[in-house]
Amino acid sequence: MKKLINRVEDVVSESIEGLVLANPDLVRYEREPFFVYRASSQTKEKVALVSGGGSGHEPLHGGYVGYGMLDAACPGEIFTSPVPDQIVSAVKKVDHGAGVLLIVKNYTGDVMNFEMAHEILEMEGIKVERVIVSDDVAVEDSLYTTGRRGVGGTVLLEKIVGAAAEEGWDLERVKDLAERVAGRVRSMGLALSSCTVPAKGSPTFALGHDEIELGIGIHGEPGRKRIPKQPADTLTEMLTQPIIDDLALTSGDSVIALVNGMGGTPLMELYIVYRKLEQLLRERGIAIQRNLVGNYITSLEMQGVSITLLKADEEILAFWDLPVHTSALRWGM
């Protein structure tokens, strides 16, 4: 294993220290329990947004703490959900009485740890609601399983719902909007290579030189299918079609599109994917109203890409355009 790290056990904390040192005007952190929160103290009473999850997905979630997005983020160990202590402390730090929305990606560990934190916070009389993001169409949804994973849709949701909270919406409306966004966003990804979790020291799965893992998540976990390598256009279509089908997108629809790198993919290749995605949607009469292309929710150094489409409407686009100022996403201010 060759990585720019010091001691394996310090990877997460040293990375967050660096994030905070690089953005002193935006974020601070507390060490015990460990969480990141906005540097500017809140002047107005607003609903606070708290998310968190395993580390290794940078800039998610710490990079999205700041004006117009998250109030706090709880980083877990690499690919391991944060623990209830962290979530409870972060919520208490950023709650100003208007209540807190927890944004949880749908993984068993994340769901259970946030659920335990939620139970503790409710016992202490703090107003808390929870939204679960499960946008990965690679996973078959069924009553008997855990359901779909939460992936790229989380980034779009945090931005849109963060703007509504900043506008002064109350907890109930913020939660409803979050549910509405979660219901209209879908993603799918693929990997050209695996990633190496520092504590393990070797790649999580082995992929041959000409093999591609289709339907991966963001934890270096194997996907649903292994296929021989193909041109970017073919692969882009393989990712896009299931999303279009699942959202039942038709001519005249508008979307926000995210072409996301998994950490080790050149931006050059992400634009090749975006080029084809734009063409596929245009041919079907679907308009990309806004887009993001880059590394927004990663899987360490994995080479790969995911596509996320959010079926947009006027309200969603209006919130999307409102100012945001975080270390990883910034416009309008």
Binding site: P33, Y107, M112
Partner: peptide, 9 residues
């Protein structure tokens, strides 16, 4: 408070 993941809870 230490395990995290699914196995902690």
């Amino acid at each position: 408070s230490k395990v995290g993941g699914a196995s902690g809870p």
